[in-house]
Every structure is written in C-alpha cells, then in structure tokens.
Simulated assay, not measured.
Amino acid sequence: MTTLRLRPEGPADADPVRRVLAGAFARAGVPVPPEVGLVDELRDSDAWIPELAMVAEYGGEVVGYALLTRVRVDPGQFPALALGPVAVAPHRQRIGLGVSVVQAALEAATELGERLVVVLGDPAYYRRFGFDRADRMGLSSPWSGLGEPWQALVLPPTLSGEVGVPRGEVVFPPPWSRV
C-alpha cells in the first residue's frame, strides 16, 4: 500500500519541489513557470517560515506542495500569511493530495498561533478550507480588483486567546511583485 506523508520541506526537497511546481504550472512557450522562481526567492527572504512549507510525499516521491509565507496588513504591520503556490505533480492530480497538503499547512499555521491567511485562487477550491472573499473582511491588495479569487481565512485561535483580525492593505514581500 502506498502511503501519504505530509511534512515540512527539508533541504533535500528543493529540487523535487521545483519539479512539482514546473509540472503543475507548465504553460506552452514558458520554459520555467514564474512560480518556480517565486518559491526560490521566498526561500531566501524574511517571509520564509520553514515549518510552513509543506510537501506531500507519496510512495517516497515528493508530489505535492503548499507554501505559507509572511505578509503584513497595514496599518499596524499585523502579521499574516499568504498561501501559494499550491501544486501537485500532474501524474498525481485529482486524488486529494492538494487538499491534504493545504490542510497540513493550515493546521501547522494554527499550531504556530497564526491568525490570518490570504490566497488568490479558485473560490470553489479554497472555500472547502473556509476561505471567503477578502474584501468582505476589509482586506485589500494588488489583486483586490479580481473580486472573488482574492480570499482570506481567519484561523482558529490558539489557547493563548483570541486576537482581532485587522482591516487594511495586505503587503506582500518583493518576490510576489514578479508573479
């Protein structure tokens, strides 16, 4: 029986993660999808949180990826997270690995006491995790004009207590401006 293992990305996973991203985001005429470079740049930035870069290993092969990195909400520089990219190798898609790796990343974020996650993606997909339109929560970003795909999720509070969620502009680290 093939087993699924969900875990934080380790140093030896960089190349397998690049292959997963390249396969999942492959587009005609684009030799290397921008998502590959985004993850490489985020790894070398202050936005990187090693515990929140999750891989899905299926049968010993890295086949899925979900990344949460630091963003801030202004005013006040409230810490939040951005989800993305999320990818599954083409030969392992449509069997629930994407859902599993995203759920693992969100659970890890909750355990770390994080409160807010934003994502730009398919509302039908991300709704299953509890995401809703970010503009309804008073959050804006360079992608706000896209409407429903700009989403946010308030994570459950940890034992340390409830902390309010801010309203304002979500500020992404520089690597995101090149995607």
Rank of each mutant, 00 (worst) to 15 (best):
M1K: 09
M1E: 13
T2Y: 08
T2I: 11
L4E: 14
L4C: 08
L4H: 03
R5L: 15
P8C: 08
G10T: 12
A12W: 07
D13C: 03
D13H: 02
D13T: 05
A14Q: 14
V17F: 08
V20M: 00
L21G: 00
A22F: 08
R27C: 07
R27K: 15
A28P: 12
A28T: 14
V30A: 11
P31F: 11
P31E: 13
P31M: 12
V32F: 08
E35V: 03
V36A: 04
V36N: 03
V39I: 04
D40N: 10
E41D: 15
L42M: 06
D44M: 12
S45C: 05
D46S: 15
A47P: 04
W48D: 12
P50T: 05
A56L: 09
A56K: 09
E57V: 12
G59M: 01
V62K: 02
V63E: 07
V73S: 09
D74K: 13
P75M: 04
G76P: 02
Q77F: 12
F78I: 09
F78E: 14
L81G: 11
L81Y: 10
L83I: 14
A89R: 09
P90L: 07
Q93R: 15
I95S: 13
S100D: 14
A104S: 11
L112W: 06
E114P: 05
G121L: 13
G121V: 07
G121K: 07
G121Y: 10
D122Q: 01
A124F: 04
F129C: 00
G130Y: 10
F131Y: 15
D132E: 13
M137L: 14
M137H: 14
Q151F: 05
A152Q: 01
L155Y: 02
T158Y: 02
V165N: 06
V165L: 00
R167L: 00
G168H: 00
E169N: 13
F172S: 05
F172C: 04
P173M: 09
P175V: 04
P175W: 01
R178M: 03
